[in-house]
Amino acid sequence: MAESYNANQFRSGLKVLVDGDPCVMLDVEFVKPGKGQAFTRVKYRNLNTGRVNEKTFKSGETVAGADVVDTVMQYLYGDGEFWHFMDPNSYEQYQAGEGAMADAAKWLKEEAECQVTLYNNAIIQVTPPMFVELKVVETEPGIRGDTAGTGGKTASLETGAVVRVPLFVNEGDVLKLDTRTAEYVGRVKE
């Protein structure tokens, strides 16, 4: 059983159980009218649903910590229903469903190292590497000379992601991308 936390120990990043779901605190604000009772207002993300909510705790309230572990795992393969990962230390394999994958799926190539969140030893969230290098499988032919990167077009990548890229990008190019913003960073020299 994870430990529990008092309202005055709340801080962003703390993982707790709210209404039975594992949640991560995003923003913690101390609320105290001059003469009144103190409260702590918390904005948190439900790690099962991804939804962000707000709740106010009376001072002195405690919440149970969620037995949530962040770890790095290697992506192995997808079987159409589940995405399979391996803990590089124990070689233990885990599978993640569509809910846990969310947007991560479209960035993952085999052997990619991902930040994985485990709750009760099951994957509830997968965060792709911040930067990935992926090959363009489909785009309009490149326009030579447009190295300024003005304008743009869409390109489909080998993992299924579709991103905006500069006009000079060609099919077969390998691109560096920021997965947080889905933005093109640059072309990778082969």
Binding site: P33, K35, G36, Q37, K55, T56, F57, K58, V63
Partner: peptide, 16 residues
């Protein structure tokens, strides 16, 4: 929405 295991009084609600 408030989580409190003890009563939140009328005054507490007004202040909050």
């Amino acid at each position: 929405s408030v989580q409190a295991s003890s009563d939140v009084s009328r005054q507490d609600w007004l202040n909050l």
